[in-house]
């Protein structure tokens, strides 16, 4: 996991983002056990309390569950993970579309532009 953190914004929100990305991308697969708060805090170079706060929010979202003695696990509910992935992707897409429209692209232009760029990358 890449823990590039920006001290200008609340850290726990950024940690939440990184953890969410990890879960929806499959880095932390559904049903798998998550590393301990302390290990992740050491990895990220942050205060364990802050990491704990991010975990608590994940739990509230229902993406993570705590089993008292066994530890923390990613939810088995794959649909929930899919929905989260969609939600994040939609957010990114909205930002992207706004930006492209600011640059003067029309909707049809955006789709063909994206397609041609992907083709280019495949050929490299």
């Amino acid at each position: 996991m890449s823990w590039k953190l920006d001290s200008d914004r609340p850290i726990h929100k950024q940690l939440l983002e990184v953890l969410l990305t990890g879960i929806v991308s499959g880095t932390y697969p559904s049903g798998s056990k998550l590393p301990s708060v302390r290990d992740l805090a050491m990895e990220a170079g942050v205060n364990p309390n802050t990491m704990q706060r991010a975990f608590t929010e994940l739990e509230q979202k229902g993406l993570v569950r705590t089993e008292r003695t066994a530890g923390r696990f990613v939810t088995d509910d794959r649909e929930k993970i899919e929905r989260s992935r969609d939600a994040i992707a939609t957010q990114q897409l909205t930002l992207f579309l706004d930006k492209m429209q600011q640059l003067g692209f029309q909707k049809k232009e955006i789709v063909s532009f994206v397609r041609s760029k992907i083709e280019e990358e495949k050929n490299e």
Binding site: D6, S7, D8, P10, I11, T50, R53
Partner: peptide, 14 residues
């Protein structure tokens, strides 16, 4: 520290 970041939108260093 987190409350400060939230409030001021700045790092503690700043």
């Amino acid at each position: 520290v987190e409350d400060l970041r939230e409030e001021k939108g700045k790092s503690l260093d700043a």
